[in-house]
């Protein structure tokens, strides 16, 4: 019985992230437009875009190989599996033992590897520039991410997200400088990984400034729809990850109580809205960086992560 309930909870979270992802993207877009005093697209526009895209014909370059057609599904599947392993409104995930935080990060790495290959498949210069820069950014973001994982695991004694959330929600944590540093580093990594301003601009098609959009430049129709959905999912994943690791309050911890679950779902949506608002605010207030300033940005994230871990050694906390 408990297993059934756990399974149900797992599937509910999987369905929830899939359904909410385009909404979050739409929400950020609308907010950004309004902050710029534009009317902006309606909230549900991303869903309409997806529907439109899957009804359209695919125009594919003459020399595209099989890899090019397979990659969208690989990217979607790995991102979706990663997203469904992050606790959103409840920690009881049946499948949480499949993967810890490092595996989730590596799964996103698999998606990126596939997409970067697709960028090179046709043999155009824009696809190449996108892939090459994406891999450069990833090579700097991953060590920073690992330092954050190290800090959390030092505190919580675990890299299993459910355990981390339960620990951080508990009374043993207190206010810690290390956590604040790790949070800042995590936000910086999330911005870089999701190709947001100031690293990359998701709204641009100005050739020389794009990274993610350059890789998927040749995609169209249903393939593009799948990739767009995966990109939305990735944004949602990182927001859920930050929520789960740094503000787990309100999440239903190891319980099936309906009230707790409802509370958890409510607080999760609230956290996403808050995160979306902050993202829109930040993006409106910042200008995009030159590509070769990115190492400085991510180097700072790495240093913050390293400092957070080292500070924990010196500090004498209740843990």
């Amino acid at each position: 019985m408990a297993l059934m309930a756990d399974l149900l909870l797992q599937f509910a979270q999987m369905a929830l992230v899939l359904l909410l992802a385009p909404l979050l993207t739409g929400f950020v877009r609308t907010l950004k437009a309004q902050m710029l005093r534009r009317q902006g697209p309606p909230l549900l526009q991303p869903y309409r875009d997806l529907l439109k895209l899957i009804r359209k014909e695919v125009v594919m370059a003459e020399n595209a190989s099989w890899l090019y057609r397979v990659v969208p599904y690989v990217v979607f599947a790995t991102t979706f599996v990663a997203a469904s392993l992050v606790p959103t409104f409840a920690t009881r995930l049946v499948f949480s033992h499949i993967a810890d935080l490092i595996v989730i990060v590596a799964l996103l790495g698999t998606a990126r590897f596939a997409l970067a290959l697709a960028g090179l498949d046709i043999g155009t210069s824009f696809g190449g520039i996108g892939s090459s820069r994406e891999m450069m950014i990833a090579s700097l973001a991953e060590p920073a991410m690992l330092m954050i994982v190290f800090t959390l695991s030092l505190l919580a004694g675990s890299t299993q997200l459910s355990s981390v959330a339960v620990f951080l929600e508990g009374p043993d944590v207190g206010l810690r400088v290390s956590l604040a540093m790790a949070l800042v580093a995590m936000v910086m990594v999330a911005i870089a990984e999701n190709a947001r301003i100031p690293i990359d601009n998701p709204a641009t098609h100005l050739e020389l400034t794009m990274v993610h959009e350059a890789m998927i430049l040749e995609y169209s129709g249903r393939h593009l729809a799948v990739i767009e959905l995966a990109a939305s999912l990735k944004l949602l994943l990182y927001m859920s990850l930050i929520a789960c690791m740094f503000v787990p309050w309100g999440m239903a911890m190891r319980t099936h109580d309906a009230v707790a679950l409802a509370l958890g779902a409510g607080s999760y949506v609230l956290k996403l809205a808050m995160g979306g608002f902050l993202l829109a605010l930040f993006e409106t207030g910042t200008a995009k960086m030159r590509v070769f300033r990115i190492p400085d940005f991510l180097g700072a994230a790495l240093m913050l992560g390293l400092l957070a871990a080292l500070l924990l050694f010196v500090s004498r906390g209740p843990a």
Binding site: K56, E57, M60, E62, I122, G221
Partner: peptide
């Protein structure tokens, strides 16, 4: 849609 058309690369 199942339609698929091969065309020169867009770039």
């Amino acid at each position: 849609s199942h339609a698929l058309r091969r065309a020169p690369a867009w770039d």
